[in-house]
Design a protein around this nucleic acid. Structure first.
Length: 171
DNA sequence: CGTGTTTGACCTGCGC
DNA sequence: GCGCAGGTCAAACACG
């Protein structure tokens, strides 16, 4: 099926941070994602884009339908979301619990890429966190898959995050 | 003791 | 087939 996800990431109203993800893998989920940069602005971009800086305040989410194959299993398509965040720290607390399972040096990048998996049972959402050589202030977080469970931290924190996002986006 | 991180080895895909 | 790069595994380790 054809889906246009380009507007998937509107800034949610403060009363609700439900993000429409219906159509992704035929599933829907609430609170797909939130980011908590420790400071500064959030911008979101395509993981294919080279011009990482982007314009401040611009929001651009690209979902990449990636073929994932495993031995003996049929291909499954997983949505992939790349977020670009200006932050001093690599770890963005999005409310889910993540376990790091790997770290690799990336070519043409002096910073390593870290691999995380959601620790919730049955939820195999993955994310990669990578800092850019070009701009050390930029952290690129790539999410793969959709959480099959509600967010774990029921924090006010999360609403703060979202309100921050509204501030930093032109919507 | 439970949970998460570190890190080298291993696997896989791809280009030559 | 070979080498490289990216992705994952898993044992050892650290920490509250």
């Amino acid at each position: 099926m054809e889906n246009n996800y380009s507007m998937l990431f509107p800034c949610p109203p403060s009363s609700s941070y439900q993000i429409p993800t219906s159509g992704l893998n035929g599933q829907s989920s609430n609170a797909f994602l939130g980011l908590k940069p420790t400071n500064n602005e959030i911008s979101v971009t395509h993981d294919d884009h080279e011009d990482v800086k982007g314009e401040e305040g611009s929001v651009n989410v690209i979902i990449d339908q990636q073929d994932v194959k495993k031995k003996g299993e049929k291909k499954a398509k997983k949505p992939k979301y790349a977020f670009q965040t200006r932050s001093q720290v690599d770890i963005l607390d999005d409310g889910y619990r993540w376990r790091k399972y790997g770290q690799k040096a990336v070519k043409n990048n002096k910073f390593p890429r870290s691999y995380y998996r959601c620790t919730h049972q049955g939820c195999n959402v993955k994310k990669q966190v990578q800092r850019l050589t070009k701009d050390e202030g930029v952290v690129v977080t790539t999410y793969e898959g959709v959480h099959t469970h509600p967010i774990e931290k029921t924090t006010d924190n999360f609403e703060h995050i979202l309100s921050q996002m509204q501030i930093y986006t032109p919507f």
